[in-house]
């Protein structure tokens, strides 16, 4: 009997519900915390980013058009998928971050709970951030929170799973579509989350995951005029430059540390909402 050869997994991009290699054909080596080769990941190009933004733009109206209840169900389904793949996620957290197994398991469980937490928020955002306004006239006046549209996320570099879930799920639960640049050194949990989302009825294009060189991709994302918001959680020293680029096309820019408790997470949801105000005549 010959010894069985292991089947090694290629970690590909997630764009528009599909798993392409980079259009450029490039890949790069991902190393674990000890410096050993962990896997090859696709190294996305500017054109992959352009395609991802286009997919997000196309998907966003449908995602926002679904009922809030339905969006919550879909996000809960993402949590179900993650629950079934806890061991795999924990393996990757151990490999990427070099932490103890027990710590990694706790991190994965916390991340899954956070997905459920965001799932619960989909049909409550309007109650918290919307309302009726007192006006001096015979009108009803409502303010309704609506999503910004396409949000670009630079995922936290170190906290490759929990930080990712915070930064990605907040805009998605509010009805945005997301293009996320995964942590450059620890991209695998992001690719796994993208795979789970694709098998959890999240419409194609709502979550697009790009892996590759941040210095190459982030400025293009920040400059892209068809992106409405930027979460720069993982931008590090590029943060000021990216924020200035984002200002060039009047994007909403958030540069919080994602590892804060619930109140900060609500700020993440709030960051990518617009307010639509409607006047409605009374009694006619």
């Amino acid at each position: 009997m010959s010894e069985r050869l292991g089947v090694r997994k290629t970690y590909k991009l997630v764009v528009n519900g599909a798993f392409p290699r980079s259009e450029s054909g490039r890949s790069y080596e991902v190393r674990d915390a000890a410096g050993a080769l962990l896997a090859n990941a696709a190294q996305a190009s500017r054109k992959d980013l352009r395609d991802a933004v286009r997919a997000a733009r196309a998907a966003q109206p449908g995602w926002w058009g679904a009922s809030a209840y339905n969006r919550g169900q879909v996000l809960y389904r993402v949590a179900e998928m993650a629950e079934a793949r806890r061991e795999e996620l924990a393996d990757q957290v151990v490999a990427a971050e070099g932490v103890e197994r027990a710590h990694a398991t706790a991190t994965v469980e916390r991340a899954i709970d956070r997905i459920v937490w965001f799932a619960g928020w989909t049909d409550k955002i309007a109650q918290v951030y919307g309302g009726t306004n007192p006006v001096a006239g015979p009108y009803f006046n409502f303010s309704i929170p609506t999503p910004s549209g396409v949000v670009g996320v630079v995922a936290p570099a170190e906290d490759s799973l929990l930080g990712l879930v915070e930064t990605v799920m907040a805009p998605i639960c509010a009805g945005n579509a997301v293009v996320v640049l995964a942590s450059e050194t620890r991209p695998i949990p992001a690719v796994l989350l993208g795979e789970m989302a694709a098998t959890a009825d999240l419409p194609a294009g709502v979550l697009n995951v790009l892996t590759g060189r941040l210095a190459e991709l982030a400025p293009v994302l920040a400059d892209h005029e068809d992106v409405d918001g930027l979460d720069l959680a993982g931008a590090g020293e590029m943060r000021a430059d990216l924020a200035a680029r984002g200002a060039g096309s009047i994007k909403r820019v958030l540069a919080d540390d994602p590892r804060d408790p619930d109140a900060a997470a609500l700020r993440r949801i709030r960051a990518f909402l617009e307010t639509t105000t409607v006047w409605h005549t009374i009694g006619q």
């Binding site: 733009r57 293009v220 005029e225 068809d226």
Partner: peptide
């Protein structure tokens, strides 16, 4: 201009 633009432009 060196940046990707909105289709609505």
């Amino acid at each position: 201009r060196g940046v990707y633009v909105r289709p609505e432009l």
